[in-house]
């Protein structure tokens, strides 16, 4: 089942320098948001990155999409070193790597109609004619469980779950190979979370997607991912098969995380 590596990071690092003003002038303090992270993501798999707020998981997501530049280390996508790419190359790389963010509303430009939002990625990369783009947008809209009529509406007319569906449609319209989901369901209601997770799984099968799934929710990650990497203070403290980690965690922090999951009476019996 071992398939080719799609994305690989080698000793990836990101430091932020915080300037602290003290009574006697400025003092620079270096914050290591991501510290020597080496990970490989295989074609077609889902890698979960778990950690609590401030552990560096979102920074990691932005590093591998080159939304921010690393302080050290390398990222390879499909054997090409993306950390060495110039801006125009990075822009065309976006066709292959897409992101879905946590806040479904804030991810959408409030002044654009859904149709314009969905056709924008195609427009940016100059793909197809205007008419074909519209058709593709309608098709994508139906794929994520919305209707054609929704195309003429504005984001504020939708619920959070529907907005996240629009975000997913926009991310997938370019047919990317890798999709990075940064807490895609944590802002949604419980009953909507399951819908969106199922949708992401369906789309993964249909488009043969590879996912990097970032979340703080171990239940969701265990369900959704093949492998898990646990991140703590910028470092990967444990990684491996999802079920193994869930059943037999090795690192203390992983154990602590697992113990903190609220369990209802029913699931205790499981």
């Amino acid at each position: 089942m071992e398939s080719a590596i799609l994305l690989e990071t080698q000793d990836l690092e990101k430091n932020y320098t915080l300037k602290k003003k003290t009574l006697f002038g400025k003092k620079a303090e270096v914050l290591q948001a991501v510290n020597k992270v080496s990970l490989a993501i295989h074609q077609g798999e889902t890698l979960g990155i778990v950690g609590e707020s401030g552990c560096g998981k979102s920074t990691f997501a932005r590093l591998i999409t080159r939304l921010i530049a690393p302080s050290g280390g390398k990222v390879f996508f499909d054997q090409k070193e993306i950390t060495a790419m110039a801006q125009p190359e990075v822009r065309s790389l976006r066709k292959d790597i897409q992101m879905i963010f946590q806040d479904p509303y804030a991810s959408l430009d409030p002044r654009k109609r859904v149709l314009a939002i969905l056709t924008e990625p195609l427009e940016i990369h100059g793909i197809k004619t205007a008419k074909e783009r519209r058709e593709l947008a309608y098709e994508m809209l139906e794929k994520v469980g919305l209707q054609r009529e929704h195309a003429s509406r504005f984001p504020h007319e939708f619920s959070g779950g529907q907005c996240q569906r629009i975000n997913i449609a926009r991310a997938l319209i370019l047919r990317p190979r890798l999709v990075i989901c940064d807490e895609p369901v944590s802002a949604l209601d419980v009953s909507i979370q399951a819908q969106v997770l199922n949708l992401l799984l369906d789309l993964q099968e249909e488009f043969h997607l590879t996912y990097v799934f970032i979340s703080h929710d171990l239940n969701v990650v265990r369900y959704f991912c093949d492998r898990i990497a646990v991140m703590y203070k910028g470092e990967i403290v444990e990684s491996g098969d999802a079920e193994t980690i869930y059943q037999a965690p090795v690192h203390d922090y992983t154990k602590k995380l697992l113990q903190a999951i609220p369990k209802s009476i029913e699931s205790n019996e499981e």
């Binding site: 939304l67 990075v90 822009r91 976006r94 897409q98 963010f101 924008e120 940016i124």
Partner: peptide, 8 residues
């Protein structure tokens, strides 16, 4: 940021 991530 999202628009940026689309390659605009």
């Amino acid at each position: 940021e999202v628009t940026n991530s689309l390659g605009a």
